[in-house]
Simulated scan of single mutants.
Amino acid sequence: MQAARWLSSTSARTLQETTSTLQAVAEEWLSHQAGRWEANTLARTRASLEADVFPALGSTPIAEITTRQVMEVVKKIEARGAGEIAMRVLQRIKAIYRYATTHQHIDRNPMGDLVPSEILKPRRVQHRAALGPADLPEFLSKLDAYQGDPHTVHALRLLMLTAARPGEIRSACWTEFDLAAKLWRIPAERMKMRTEHVVPLSAQAIAVVESMKPMSGHRDLVFPSPFYPSKPLSENTFNSAMARMGYKYLATAHGFRALFSTVANEAGWNADAIERQLAHAERDQVRAAYDRGSRLPERVKLMEWWANYLDSRRVGKVVPLHQLAA
């Protein structure tokens, strides 16, 4: 009887392994991730699998795919000059196999020992182009004189004053702002790390938000598209405006975060407070819980200092950083 049950379970498992193709398990994995990922992240991940993995391996039972086949797929991507995509595809395949093992599509994970650095060539990390402190007077002058859409101008100003990500600014809603408390609470579902982010607002940042009330105070979005008011500013809006100001290839909107980090660190502000302001995840969960409760008062002072620093650079004034931080 026990032997019969063992044979029955073994046969069922073998049948599952031979009928569970890589594409079928990948679709199951994607559905599992849908609740925790942003729609564009899910779409990008699916698109990369459809373009580079499914044509070669999608119809193959997941248990029959070898590490050599996976290596051939990612090295083919790398050969066309897409090293970053090759790295991400390999990571996604490994994640699919971990899911398949956990959910008993396969008995063991043959991809667990694949090490990206042993398969793909080293890549030179390219950071987003960013302004330096010395570039600020000219940029701020050009921003003040910019004749483009006022939604974009004010959004760029708030982007600089808060060190938020461009996407967080573009989709900001009026319900997230408590101007009396001088706080902007970005909900978890809009954050990269899926954790609510509280942003202290300087007097200058509040003035920018207040200036939007006549233009969008009757809408959900603070910075709606001037063409489709129910939608936020488009993803390329900020960089397109900067290109028209003469900064194409020289700086990106995301680069303001790097500028803020550089200047604040050089001025001697606490590194943990700076990282919390940038909404960078703390790997230590105990420390992360502590930081959420203890860094806000320091970040209030930090962002007031940062706004005053930007004002000083607007008029070309050179003030020692330690003097500003005092």
Results as ranks from 00 to 15, higher is better:
Ile93Pro: 00
Trp305Pro: 03
Met1Lys: 13
Ala24Tyr: 03
Trp37Tyr: 10
Phe139Ile: 05
Ala267Tyr: 05
Ala3Gly: 09
Val25Ile: 13
Ala39Lys: 15
Pro122Leu: 11
Ala203Asn: 11
Arg46Cys: 04
Met242Glu: 06
Cys173Lys: 07
Val198Ser: 09
Ala24Gln: 07
Leu324Val: 08
Gly217Thr: 12
Ile169Glu: 01
Gln33Met: 14
Val53Arg: 00
Lys94Ala: 03
Asp149Pro: 06
Ser59Glu: 14
Leu324Ile: 13
Ser8Phe: 13
Gly293Trp: 07
Lys142Leu: 14
Ala79His: 06
Leu156Ser: 03
Ala258Gln: 06
Leu143Lys: 05
Thr175Lys: 15
Trp37Glu: 12
Ala207Gly: 12
Lys75Val: 10
Gln126His: 09
Gly293Leu: 10
Pro166Lys: 02
Ala251Cys: 09
Val198Gln: 10
Ile119Thr: 05
Lys75Arg: 15
Arg92Ser: 00
Phe260Gly: 01
Leu22Phe: 14
Val209His: 00
Glu78Met: 01
Leu324Asn: 08
Arg185Asn: 13
Glu38Lys: 15
Lys317Asn: 09
Tyr228Cys: 13
Ile62Phe: 09
Ala181Arg: 12
Tyr247Trp: 08
Thr262Asn: 12
Ile62Ser: 03
Gly132Thr: 09
Thr45Leu: 08
Thr162Val: 08
Ala56Met: 14
Gly293Tyr: 09
His105Leu: 03
Asp291His: 11
Gly167Leu: 05
Ala100Ser: 04
Ile65Asp: 00
Leu233Ile: 04
Gly58Cys: 12
Leu250Lys: 14
Arg80Ile: 10
Asp220Asn: 11
Ile77Gln: 00
Phe256His: 00
Met245Val: 12
Tyr99Cys: 02
Leu7Ala: 15
Gln91His: 11
Arg190Lys: 15
Lys75Asp: 07
Thr67Val: 14
Ala273Gln: 05
Ser261Val: 04
Leu22Gly: 00
His154Gln: 15
Asp52Pro: 00
Ala264Lys: 03
Pro214Asp: 04
Ser31Gln: 15
Pro229Val: 05
Leu221Trp: 07
Glu266Ala: 11
Leu201Arg: 01
Lys192Ser: 09
Leu161Tyr: 06
Met1His: 12
Thr19Arg: 11
Ala134Trp: 00
Glu17Tyr: 07
Asp178Ser: 11
Gln69Pro: 08
Arg276Pro: 03
Ala281Met: 10
Ala47Pro: 00
Ala251Trp: 01
Lys142Asn: 08
Lys213Pro: 01
Gln33Glu: 14
Ala145Ser: 10
Ala100Arg: 00
Gln104Lys: 11
Met111Cys: 15
Asn265Met: 08
Asp113Lys: 06
Ala267Lys: 11
Trp305Ile: 02
